[in-house]
């Protein structure tokens, strides 16, 4: 890579990092590309040299987030993980990107369809790991015999509810930092077969 290409790549990364920061604070819809340019310390036109349009910049940030979450979940998932560990892995990855992810799910209806597809991609990775551990637990009759989509959507719905209402649950910080462990523990208790 020559110096010019390196500089170009570096500027692209700086714009992406600035956009991630701005969108994590203000959401994807409201901020202007001027705000991103100012945060990145580049001229407004430079943003468009690299991303052509505001929509392309938003999608690049969302794609980066999707890749980061899926690789974190894959890398932290070890064969033979317990249900608790799989759920921990998922929430730890979300927690590290909590603000940006929360804006993504809250603003999905207003975002391009690729944003929705990226969310389904993230969910497919966690579904893959959960499916493996839950299938085994069902065979061993350790969890209730409920359909996988019901279990999966109950879990995702629960987490998204807490994230989307974080002002009610944790107005001054991360909702997952406060609730992660009890959400996991209570979800597992709901699923467990009562042996008494």
């Amino acid at each position: 890579m020559n110096k010019r290409t390196q500089q170009r790549e570096q500027t692209r990364i700086e714009i992406l990092t600035a956009a991630e920061h701005i969108y994590a604070v203000h959401g994807f819809i409201r901020p202007s590309t001027q705000m991103v340019a100012k945060e990145a310390g580049v001229a407004h036109g430079t943003v468009f040299l690299h991303f052509q349009s505001q929509e392309k910049l938003i999608l690049a940030v969302i794609e980066n987030l999707g890749q980061s979450l899926t690789s974190q979940i894959h890398e932290s998932s070890v064969p033979g993980h317990s249900l608790n560990e799989v759920l921990q892995t998922y929430l730890t990855a979300i927690e590290a990107n909590e603000s940006l992810y929360t804006h993504l799910i809250m603003e999905l209806p207003q975002l391009p369809k690729e944003a929705q597809q990226t969310v389904i991609g993230i969910q497919s990775v966690i579904a893959h790991h959960l499916d493996q551990v839950m299938s085994q637990l069902k065979k061993e009759k350790k969890i209730k015999d409920l359909s996988f989509p019901f279990l999966f959507n109950t879990w995702i719905g629960l987490i998204h509810y807490y994230l989307m209402n974080r002002r009610l649950f944790a107005p001054h910080g991360s909702v997952l930092a406060v609730y992660k462990d009890q959400l996991i523990a209570n979800f597992i208790t709901l699923l467990e077969v009562d042996c008494t």
Binding site: Q117, S124, A127, N153
Partner: peptide, 20 residues
């Protein structure tokens, strides 16, 4: 896989799979 695990509509699932 998407239909079986997430219960999505078949058309939505296919579009999402193609994107992924």
């Amino acid at each position: 896989f998407i239909i079986r695990t997430q219960g999505l509509d078949a058309h939505v699932a296919q579009k999402s799979a193609a994107f992924m």
